Computed example of a mutant assay.
Amino acid sequence: MNDSPRRKELTRQAAQLFVQEGFDRTTVRMLAQEMGIKSGSLFHHFRDKQEILAAVIEEGTQNALAIARETLQQCDNTPEARLHAMARAHLETLLTDRNAHVVALYEWRRLDTAARDHLSHLRDAYEALWEEVIDEALAAGLIHGDRFLVSRFVMGALNWTVRWYDPSGARSPDDLARELVAMISRPAT
């Protein structure tokens, strides 16, 4: 995909509009107006609205992967530190790229088959990072349960924060990550 700064800016603006209006209700005319360009000019950067949606989700998922990988490289190599790091990275993604994250969560089903097939490897890579960290925590006895269920529970809880979390509120993302780890961790015996 074209990685020009203008296309990236248009992608960010489209993400905001998709969050506000929903993908189905967002028209090409609305996108062009939000972006400050003529409708025809939009097609200089994207083939159609479907490609815009794919670009929003791709950029957001790539950012989430980059944040998660960097955070894991910088943390202690203990299962608890890595679990905390992944939770913190996920929350960081919500703070730095909220619109793209919300679009990926709620509009993934709107992607056409070709775009879904193209983007599945990014989603799968992100989920694989979570599964690796959860496997380590399970093996260390830090948490217990079925990996599939634990990963869905954790990611579901983190994803839901887009609905209620206030970054200017009393709890920092680090506080939330710490609380999450404490909730799912097995008490010391």
Results as ranks from 00 to 15, higher is better:
residue 1 M to P: 13
residue 3 D to G: 01
residue 3 D to E: 10
residue 3 D to H: 11
residue 6 R to L: 13
residue 6 R to E: 13
residue 14 A to D: 12
residue 14 A to M: 08
residue 14 A to V: 07
residue 18 F to S: 05
residue 19 V to E: 09
residue 20 Q to N: 09
residue 22 G to W: 08
residue 24 D to T: 10
residue 27 T to W: 08
residue 27 T to Q: 08
residue 30 M to F: 03
residue 30 M to W: 00
residue 33 Q to L: 12
residue 34 E to H: 11
residue 36 G to I: 02
residue 37 I to M: 14
residue 38 K to E: 15
residue 39 S to Y: 12
residue 40 G to R: 09
residue 42 L to K: 02
residue 42 L to E: 05
residue 45 H to A: 13
residue 49 K to D: 05
residue 49 K to R: 10
residue 50 Q to F: 11
residue 51 E to L: 00
residue 52 I to C: 08
residue 52 I to G: 03
residue 53 L to V: 10
residue 56 V to K: 00
residue 61 T to G: 06
residue 62 Q to L: 14
residue 62 Q to I: 10
residue 63 N to I: 08
residue 64 A to Y: 02
residue 67 I to C: 06
residue 67 I to P: 09
residue 70 E to W: 01
residue 71 T to L: 02
residue 72 L to V: 04
residue 72 L to T: 03
residue 72 L to P: 07
residue 72 L to I: 05
residue 73 Q to E: 12
residue 75 C to M: 10
residue 75 C to H: 09
residue 79 P to F: 05
residue 79 P to L: 01
residue 80 E to I: 02
residue 81 A to Y: 04
residue 82 R to E: 02
residue 84 H to L: 11
residue 85 A to S: 11
residue 85 A to D: 00
residue 86 M to R: 03
residue 91 L to S: 06
residue 92 E to D: 11
residue 92 E to C: 05
residue 97 D to Q: 05
residue 104 A to R: 09
residue 104 A to N: 09
residue 104 A to Y: 04
residue 106 Y to V: 00
residue 106 Y to T: 03
residue 107 E to Y: 01
residue 107 E to A: 10
residue 108 W to M: 03
residue 109 R to M: 09
residue 110 R to H: 15
residue 111 L to D: 05
residue 111 L to W: 08
residue 112 D to S: 01
residue 114 A to N: 10
residue 114 A to G: 04
residue 115 A to R: 10
residue 115 A to F: 11
residue 116 R to G: 14
residue 116 R to M: 14
residue 116 R to N: 13
residue 118 H to Y: 12
residue 119 L to C: 04
residue 119 L to V: 03
residue 122 L to S: 04
residue 124 D to N: 13
residue 126 Y to M: 01
residue 129 L to I: 14
residue 129 L to P: 05
residue 130 W to Q: 01
residue 132 E to I: 04
residue 132 E to P: 04
residue 132 E to T: 14
residue 136 E to V: 00
residue 137 A to V: 00
residue 138 L to K: 08
residue 140 A to S: 15
residue 142 L to K: 04
residue 142 L to T: 02
residue 143 I to R: 07
residue 143 I to H: 08
residue 150 V to E: 09
residue 150 V to S: 08
residue 150 V to D: 03
residue 153 F to V: 00
residue 153 F to M: 04
residue 155 M to P: 00
residue 155 M to S: 09
residue 156 G to H: 07
residue 159 N to C: 02
residue 159 N to R: 05
residue 159 N to S: 11
residue 160 W to G: 06
residue 162 V to M: 10
residue 164 W to G: 04
residue 165 Y to F: 15
residue 166 D to Q: 14
residue 171 R to F: 15
residue 173 P to L: 07
residue 175 D to F: 12
residue 175 D to E: 12
residue 177 A to S: 10
residue 180 L to H: 03
residue 181 V to S: 00
residue 182 A to I: 01
residue 182 A to M: 07
residue 183 M to D: 06
residue 183 M to A: 10
residue 185 S to E: 01
residue 185 S to D: 01
